[in-house]
Amino acid sequence: MLTIKNLHVSIDDNGNGKEILRGINLNVKAGEVHAIMGPNASGKSTLAQVLAGREGYQVTAGSVRYLGQDLLAMTPEQRACEGIFLAFQYPVEIPGVSNALFLKTALNAMRKQHGLPELDAMDFLSLVRERMKRVGMDEALLSRAVNEGFSGGEKKRNEILQLTVLEPRLAILDETDSGLDIDALKLVADGVNDMRSPERSIVLVTHYQRLLDYIVPDVVHVLSQGCIVKSGDANLARELERHGYSRVETENTAKQVA
């Protein structure tokens, strides 16, 4: 589904290019759940943003293929219509635009793109109500402005609501677990687990092992200083939890030196 080859990405740092990603290789097959773990500033969020099409990053080398297409040549809205979804680490507040209008505009934009008829108000409402129940969200949040005045947990749940309504092929969750208490974390995890299917892939970007107790990944990658330094199965995450990132980083440095 997603093949990243030797991806190098820089940002502009006072006129100088600062390299954030330094040769990422990643292959995500349909139906797989991958977790990308790593310490602060390792480049996890940059990878998520680049995949969603955020401007301001320069891809200096490498390629990203998604369902056989050149992902980097597509606009953010094209990527979304082709089934890529990013759950934001910091969901954006949009004053004056209700959550209902936002969701309906997004859903109908995608349906239109796929030649499907737009959903009318009734069908939309029954769909959204059902999905809100599933992620444990108060219906009152539908008429409120997008994320405005939402608590941290409500914002994250709102991302998962969008995920369940838009039903993407590839979902990238950027630290969706941060700032959630244990009950909210379980609800979010249930929402994501419900979405697991042989046609859908999920990439979880996270700091902590905690989320992976509830969403068990097929593959775990450790990202450090812009490179994937280690990959393994779910046990790798537990190992990291016990020993911290420094051990993996040290191992890697030792390997490079050797």
Partner: peptide, 20 residues
């Protein structure tokens, strides 16, 4: 970017923000 990442094209996204 938030709106565009949800499949809303740039022109419509701008109008939605202005409307808001």
């Amino acid at each position: 970017f938030y709106l565009r990442s949800r499949g809303i094209d740039a022109e419509l996204a701008r109008s939605v923000l202005i409307y808001g």
